[in-house]
Write a protein that binds this DNA or RNA. Sequence first.
DNA 1: AATCCAGACAACCGCATCCTG
DNA 2: ACAGGATGCGGTTGTCTGGAT
Length: 351
Amino acid sequence: MGRAPCCDKANVKKGPWSPEEDAKLKSYIEQHGTGGNWIALPQKIGLKRCGKSCRLRWLNYLRPNIKHGGFSEEEDFIICSLYISIGSRWSIIAAQLPGRTDNDIKNYWNTRLKKKLLGRRKDSLRRFSGAANLEPKEGTSEVIPSSSGLSTSALERMQLHMQLQSSQNPFSFYNNPTSWPKLQKILETQEGGDHDIANTCSALMPEAPPSPKGELIINPQQNPNSLSSDTKQEDFNNSNINGLSSSSSPMFYGSNIQMPSSTMSSSSFAVPMVGLQSELQDLISCDKILDQEAEPSYGFDSLKEMGLPRDINPIWWVNDFDAQSSSNSWDSASMLQQEGMFQEYLAGYDL
DNA sequence: AATCCAGACAACCGCATCCTG
DNA sequence: ACAGGATGCGGTTGTCTGGAT
């Protein structure tokens, strides 16, 4: 026996809402509220709609102070930061952006932001797929997790990490002044050639709150009108980032990162950014990414080809690997061996 | 002008969690 | 403590629109 349907599917209208339906729903809720029962609401006001559909329509479009489109760079930055840190928890991400809905952010990410940040990633994904046991689906660039069990979301997050970390590689496209004139200009104007990430970040984001390196300050109660009633401090406290806790993953949580505390009543806490705020901001704000051939993110095979020594190795997992290992001798081990370690490393997390 | 195609966005669906009796 | 209904969430699909051919 299956679940009882929430409404009579046969007598329920589907598809786009008409202005009349919107007006009915809006005026009723504004006068009487939802009455705490979405299922009963459509019958009360004579709408041939499912209660869930009414709820969605209200939350996403009819509610006051909803913003559509026109995402700012600051919003892009917050979305990306949180996506890297917590993945596709759209309701939590939406809670940090007043007037934005989880659906809007989800759509925005899937249709625009992801492409903007990951760019033409076919090459790098294909390269990366070798290390993570991922295979491009035939005839497409889509990558299907195989034995590694990586989700698409996890893969995207790693890919974004690699892309950002590669910006620290002096040979990287991201460090090419001709590719990133905006960033370069800022760096050059800084006193004494100080390339400190925090300074760069503040130059790129004048309104960003002062914070230690690699932290994005997020206030969990920033958006009291947030759509998702379930979005609470508790969610952050309990969400150990898909199994990556502060103690187990310095990759995500640097030692100086301020973590949410279970006793914390409000205020703010940090979403760790692995010291990559400026690079992320530059990715977001620089249109060059759309116009250039994407720099390959260096996977193991390309590193092998290049024979890169450890000190310029952009691979993001090294931090975590080193933290768990007494040996820091990158150059003494073969790349193949390290690739194996990398796969083990991946298997250790529920990504 | 017609058709195709891809991007953007709205809406739906199924599952997990919460709430209440 | 438990069951069943309500709600929330995230993935997916459907629809519309504008540009390219």
